[in-house]
């Protein structure tokens, strides 16, 4: 299989959180999107629940909440919005935005696979190791993938993010928790991969 050079991949991956932050002022996280979609389907929220605030309104509201919780003395003198914090708390995305997001991921993967010219639908992964472990069964392969997905969902929920949220956005902000999380899931993946190759 042909892979991009490491620096080409690095540039693309670095651009993802950068564009996301500069354009949307939000962290990028696939598991977070998925959680938001499930929440939205479970109980749709209204505009009253999640008011949209511009920067000045947000900072004013947060200063008021801060003064209420800790007293006026903790606030810095200028009451104007901090120019270093051009952040806007936006109303939650409607459900169709989440569908669009996941549709984009699927479409991107499909386009990439088709562009390689040799794509064929499969019940498993295009991987020798996977085929050796689970064969080409139309039942076992999907079951293993669904089981893996459930474990990933459990882990990302527990860790508060996944490879995109922690690995791209959190690490790019030098968050210690994200660095540890990324170290844990990549380290575990490498060890597991070597262990399986050694055993099989």
């Amino acid at each position: 299989m042909h892979y991009l050079a490491f620096w080409q991949s690095a540039l693309v991956l670095a651009a993802v959180p950068l564009v996301q932050w500069l354009w949307l002022r939000r962290s990028f996280g696939v598991s977070g999107r998925y959680t938001a979609l499930v929440d939205e389907l479970r109980s749709p929220r209204s505009a009253e629940d999640e008011p949209e605030m511009n920067e000045a309104e947000l900072i004013a509201a947060m200063r008021a909440a801060t003064a209420e919780a800790f007293g006026e003395s903790v606030l810095e003198a200028p009451a104007a919005p901090d120019p270093a914090a051009p952040v806007v708390l936006r109303a939650a995305d409607p459900a169709y935005m989440h569908w669009l997001f996941f549709g984009g991921i699927a479409a991107g993967g499909l386009v990439s696979a088709l562009a390689r010219g040799n794509w064929t639908p499969t019940f498993g992964l295009h991987s020798e190791l996977f085929a050796r472990m689970f064969g080409a069964s139309p039942v076992l392969g999907p079951l293993v993938l669904v089981g893996g997905g459930v474990l990933v969902g459990f882990g990302t929920r527990m860790a508060g993010g996944c490879t995109s949220g922690h690995g791209l956005c959190g690490v790019s902000q030098f968050q210690r928790g994200s660095l540890l999380a990324t170290l844990a899931f990549f380290g575990t993946g490498v060890v597991t991969s070597f262990a399986l190759r050694g055993l099989l």
Binding site: S27, M62, D82, A85, L89, G165, C169, G170, S178
Partner: peptide
Amino acid sequence: HMGTCPMYPVIKLSGS
């Protein structure tokens, strides 16, 4: 959750 919490960047960047 600091890397993914939408409120954290607001808190972090404003001294007050």
